[in-house]
């Protein structure tokens, strides 16, 4: 193949892929454009594919009808707290499982791993009853505590920390560093890729989690956004403009988290999926 044919093929393939990527982004664009259109315009049968964006009313209204920003702030708070805790706990456990020895290590690790294939349906009813017994309904403890140990997270960190050489740790020990110091000053900084991958997933999973927060929180001031969106769709099902606006805003935080961590993300996934 000559250099110029190669160049032509390269351009054609790239353009084709960009055309294909339209499929993934057009729904978002459609939602975003529609969020600036009045309801009458959105539901017009004779209208074009994209309704004409002419108004900011939808955004002005969602605070009134949805208490949107309250729910939004609640979700940001819970997802952030949970993400930080899950990453820290997963890293500690990953370190313990990969670099320390104790009786029953493999059995315990196997148990943690097996939670990944445990359907939510199995534990949700007993956990629900447990939260009622603890008196944790309508508190954020019920949203944070039961999901702190992530099988996926522990697995990811065990893989990546396992690949850090023992010599580094031994050398630090000879210098008199304790476990905690080795963990915080050596292991954590070397686990940037896993932290990035887990941050993206944990934030997303907590941001989109629906059933558990729906069961736990009934106080509308403490409600999370995913539950709110679903609920207000029932109440104001015909206020499409408002729902479009609220949904558009609801995807922004996860995209920000992704953009912050995306550089290390692929490498983080690679350590988790390899071998």
């Amino acid at each position: 193949m000559s250099k110029s044919t190669k160049k032509v093929i390269s351009i054609v393939v790239t353009i084709l892929l960009f055309a294909l990527s339209l499929v993934t982004i057009v729904p978002f664009i459609w939602m975003f454009v529609s969020s600036f259109a009045p309801n009458s315009e959105i539901v017009k049968i004779t209208g074009g594919i994209f309704p004409a964006p002419t108004t900011l009313d939808n955004y002005a209204n969602i605070q009134k009808t949805f208490n949107f920003f309250r729910l939004f702030a609640n979700s940001v708070f819970i997802a952030t707290v949970k993400t930080v805790l899950v990453i820290y706990i997963s890293a500690v456990l990953g370190y313990v499982f990969s670099k320390m020895h104790f009786r029953g290590r493999n059995v315990l690790f196997g148990a943690v791993l097996s939670t990944m294939m445990l359907p939510w349906a199995v534990t949700i009813i007993p956990q629900y009853e447990m939260m009622v017994q603890f008196g944790w309904l309508d508190t954020y403890r019920s949203l944070i505590v039961p999901g702190l140990v992530s099988g996926f997270g522990v697995f990811l960190f065990r893989q990546s920390i396992g690949s850090i050489s023992d010599e580094i740790i031994e050398a630090a020990k000879l210098d008199g560093a304790g476990d905690a110091r080795i963990f915080h000053q050596i292991i954590l900084p070397m686990s940037r890729n896993s932290i990035a991958a887990l941050a993206i997933f944990t934030f997303l999973w907590n941001w989109e989690d629906y059933l558990w927060p729906f069961l736990m929180i009934t106080d509308s001031d403490k409600m999370l956004l995913s539950v709110g969106l679903k609920m207000f769709n029932g109440q104001y099902g015909t206020d499409y403009g408002g729902l479009f606006a609220a949904t558009s805003l609801a995807i922004i935080p996860v995209i920000i988290v992704y953009m912050v961590f995306q550089k290390q993300f692929i490498a983080g996934i690679a350590t988790g999926s390899g071998k």
Partner: peptide
């Protein structure tokens, strides 16, 4: 052969990183 890989990868990955409840609504509409 493909140029702008990072951009394309980001575009293809968009749906995966958006919340399921929101995306389900978008598709319902």
């Amino acid at each position: 052969l493909v140029k702008c890989k990072d951009t394309l990868r980001g575009l293809f990955y968009m749906p995966t990183i958006t919340p399921l409840v929101a995306v389900s609504f978008v598709w319902m509409w």
